[in-house]
């Protein structure tokens, strides 16, 4: 394999592994910017993966599967929002409940639905962009599927939305100073609901990408900690969409690297390589410690009468 080929191949793997992380991390970022901690990303991704696999398996309609995954994620997001915003449940406990419930329900559902042995799902076909796809190395950016391009759109859209629109201002205000936002006439509850539901929908897309693009089947707990890595990425990226996506790229690259090393058959046990993304995330967080300031009201329920 020539070095150009290797680089192209590696970059392509990086991108594929980054996409689900980035969708989930941007979703988590929206939730946390509005003041709602969301350790349920993992469960939300899993929900999306299962929903998309179930629909794709029974209808063979890829786009319908993606839409349903998005809705299923949003629905779980709504549950998290209901628990955290309306009932003031401890946000960690609620996120944990989302994770455990999603893991249990999808495993059970998979046993019922896919009990026929191996299940091959229809793939999400790639959509090469003419001319640009033939660029050396960078061409891989233009040979991807629609979800990838959607992510490329989401990046500037979420940055613009967060920092240059009324809605973004309200969202950040609700996460930093809910009292002030409330006094200014912004509905804290409504903004938090919308952000958390949006987060669920984006995690649903992340799950659909895992199930339909990465492996084309559903496996129990196939999210395998991706939600937690996404959480690390958004802290490392300091709650900003661009830097968060770059952090996701770093973790995606680590995973791509370990897969490449495995493929080369070097004499390194795969378990040590498989640890790499988690170790990288841990070191990234430890190195950053003290420099990242979370939204001031993160994790705190807001109760009007306590003003």
């Amino acid at each position: 394999m020539s070095s150009i080929d290797f680089l192209t191949d590696f970059l392509s793997a990086c991108l594929r592994l980054t996409v689900p992380l980035a969708f989930a991390a941007i979703g988590g970022l929206l939730s946390e910017r509005s003041g709602v901690l969301n350790i349920g990303l993992e469960g939300l991704i899993l929900t999306g993966a299962f929903a998309s696999a179930a629909v794709a398996f029974s209808t063979q309609q890829v786009w319908l599967a993606i839409a349903i995954a998005c809705c299923a994620g949003a629905l779980m997001g709504w549950i998290h929002a209901y628990l955290c915003v309306s009932l003031n449940v401890n946000q960690l406990v609620s996120g944990l409940a989302i994770n455990l419930t999603a893991a249990g329900l999808t495993t059970y559902g998979a046993r019922l639905l896919f009990n026929t042995g191996t299940v091959a799902l229809p793939p999400l076909s790639s959509l090469p962009i003419p001319v640009l796809q033939h660029l050396p190395i960078l061409g891989v950016f233009f040979q991807q599927d629609l979800l990838f391009y959607l992510l490329l759109l989401l990046l500037p859209a979420s940055t613009y939305g967060l920092f240059h629109t009324q809605w973004g201002l309200s969202l950040r205000a609700v996460g930093n100073a809910p009292k002030a936002a409330d006094t200014a006439g912004v509905s804290v509850a409504r903004i938090r609901y919308v952000s958390v539901i949006l987060c669920g929908a984006l995690c649903g897309l992340a799950g659909a990408y895992l199930a339909l693009v990465h492996v084309q089947f559903f496996a129990e707990n196939m999210s395998a900690g991706k939600g937690f890595i996404a959480l690390a990425a958004l802290i490392f990226g300091r709650w900003h969409p661009v830097t968060t996506t770059l952090a996701c790229l770093l973790f995606g690259a680590t995973e791509a690297l370990q897969l490449r090393i495995q493929a080369f058959g070097l004499n390194i046990p795969y378990q040590l390589l498989a640890m790499l993304p988690y170790i990288t995330a841990l070191f990234a967080l430890a190195g950053l410690a003290g420099k990242a300031t979370p939204p001031a009201a993160l994790g705190l329920p807001y109760a009007k009468e306590k003003r």
Partner: peptide, 10 residues
């Protein structure tokens, strides 16, 4: 039972 356990936490 995993589903039941998750739901219990919920």
């Amino acid at each position: 039972i995993y589903a039941i356990q998750g739901l219990t936490v919920l």
